Amino acid sequence: MLKKMILGALAFSLTNCLVLNPLGANLDREKGSVAAGRITDAAIQTDLINSTVLSGRATISILSLLAADIAKIESEKYYVKSDVDQCVEDITGFKGFVLGSLITNIISCQDLKTDGYVTGDPFPSF
């Protein structure tokens, strides 16, 4: 009985991954509108800190407000959360403070992958 339960759980787990991940129902995904907000917030934060350090006044550039558009984020799609996390980390990290939020956004956030058949690309990578 225990063997059947273990095999059943294993089969369900594998089926779950094989079915739900391509459909975009896995846990490591983030809606485009949320990802866009996080990237924009990171760019604004980096601009505020950089401008305060360099000129003594906190200012933001118009390009930091357009950070999600520069990263080509589509609000109705879903993105791999770990890729979005890395993008935000690059913008708010050392690279962002040295290169600025715009250049870091262009370098780090241009290859964000969408996730799932239903709401993402038709053929996600396995």
Rank of each mutant, 00 (worst) to 15 (best):
K77N: 07
A68L: 11
S82M: 01
A67Y: 05
E74G: 01
L54S: 10
I60H: 06
I70G: 02
E89A: 15
L54R: 08
Q110T: 00
L48N: 02
K113R: 09
M5A: 15
Y117E: 02
K95I: 07
I60P: 02
L23N: 10
A36V: 08
L2S: 12
A36C: 03
K4R: 15
A67L: 10
Y78L: 03
Q110W: 04
Q86P: 03
L99N: 14
T59H: 07
N105P: 04
N26I: 00
V53M: 13
F123H: 12
S82N: 03
D69V: 11
L10N: 05
L63M: 13
L27Y: 08
M5S: 13
K77I: 03
N50M: 07
G56C: 08
Y79K: 05
D111Q: 09
N105S: 14
S51E: 15
Q110R: 02
G93L: 00
I106S: 00
S61M: 09
M5P: 03
D85F: 12
A71C: 01
S61A: 14
I103T: 07
N50H: 00
S51R: 14
A42C: 01
G37V: 02
D115S: 08
V19R: 01
L48E: 09
T52V: 06
P122N: 10
T119I: 08
A36H: 02
I73V: 14
D121W: 03
S108N: 04
S33T: 05
I39Q: 08
F12A: 15
E30T: 09
E30W: 04
Q45V: 02
L23D: 13
I6Q: 03
C109Q: 00
